[in-house]
């Protein structure tokens, strides 16, 4: 194992971690504000990827296709919120899990009906097609670096929104007590739609950017959602900082694990350990801090 390979894997882990972060903050926002456990959140990542794949066939300018894909996701998420999610907010978590799991299956089937079973592929924009020299001998794909950068900017924008704007204050106040926010004159229904759309757009942004890296196919978001749920548990529900730290930890752990464990333990056992490592970390964190690294809810 060379230093160059470690560096490359570190960048891969970082990039994977940032995609997980985009997923996990959406999960944590929807849970924190609407008390919603949304197993259809992976569908939003998938829709983002399908929308960019479809848009790229019609629109040649990548930035336009990018914006179009996000706008389509926004429309889909408004429909989903109004038609399906809203009544779920006041229901129990088991009902939410069942209902949103059903939604994810339905969306998985819907994309097959629209785009077929075959995976779709998207080319990265030409101007991001090159590589960057990390060292004299190692170069790294520019596109992957761009993903990390855009995800970091999205995280920063979300933080600014929550910390510095009135909408952000209302979202945080709504997370504490939506009834009181409403009784003081805020249309909480609209606020919740906004939060759901923001959360969906973050996931979709991950999907749009992953499009050129992995096969765009039905169900592609679901494994990522499961990891994102682990991230939220590790980082602490409702904590943006926790989501960031845990996402990067899980991204790096997963990426390096896939390299190191098979190397140390042979392919079969090594892969099992690599797959389990995130959940072992999760179990350890829960054992020490039941509410996660940065969670402050009494668990």
């Amino acid at each position: 194992m060379t230093g160059g390979l470690v560096l490359e894997q570190a960048f891969n882990g970082l990039q994977f971690g940032m995609i997980l972060f985009l997923m996990a903050v959406g999960v944590t926002l929807a849970f924190g504000v609407m008390n919603l456990i949304n197993l259809a959140h992976g569908s939003m990542l998938m829709l983002g990827a399908y929308f960019i794949a479809a848009a790229a066939t019609k629109i040649t300018a990548y930035p336009l296709a990018f914006v179009a894909a996000l706008m389509l996701t926004a429309v889909a998420s408004v429909l989903l919120e109004v038609l399906v999610m809203r009544p779920l907010y006041r229901m129990g978590h088991l009902d939410q899990v069942l209902a949103t799991f059903g939604v994810s299956i339905a969306v998985n089937e819907a994309v097959i009906m629209i785009w077929g079973r075959e995976a779709m592929f998207v080319a990265p924009p030409e101007w991001l097609d090159g590589t960057v020299a990390l060292t004299d001998t190692i170069s790294y794909p520019l596109y992957r670096l761009a993903i990390t950068g855009v995800a970091a900017l999205a995280g920063l924008a979300l933080w600014l929104l929550l910390a510095r704007t009135r909408l952000g204050m209302r979202i945080r106040a709504g997370a504490e007590n939506g009834d009181i926010v409403g009784a003081l004159g805020v249309n909480v229904r609209l606020l919740f739609i906004g939060v759901f759309v923001i959360s969906s757009l973050l996931a979709a942004l991950g999907g749009v950017m992953l499009g050129p890296l992995i096969a765009v196919q039905s169900g592609m978001g679901d494994p990522l959602l499961i990891l994102a749920l682990a991230v939220v548990v590790i980082g602490g529900v409702g904590s943006l900082k926790g989501a960031l730290v845990a996402s990067l930890a899980v991204g790096l752990l997963d990426t390096f694990g896939r390299m190191i464990w098979p190397h140390l333990m042979g392919n079969i056992i090594g892969n099992i350990v690599a797959n389990a490592s995130v959940y072992i970390l999760m179990a350890l964190v829960i054992a020490v801090r039941p509410s996660g690294l940065f969670g402050n809810h009494a668990a």
């Binding site: 009135r166 204050m169 945080r172 106040a173 004159g185």
Partner: peptide
């Protein structure tokens, strides 16, 4: 201040 501003009109 945020408490005051959040729902202010």
């Amino acid at each position: 201040e945020e408490n005051l501003v959040a729902t202010a009109r």
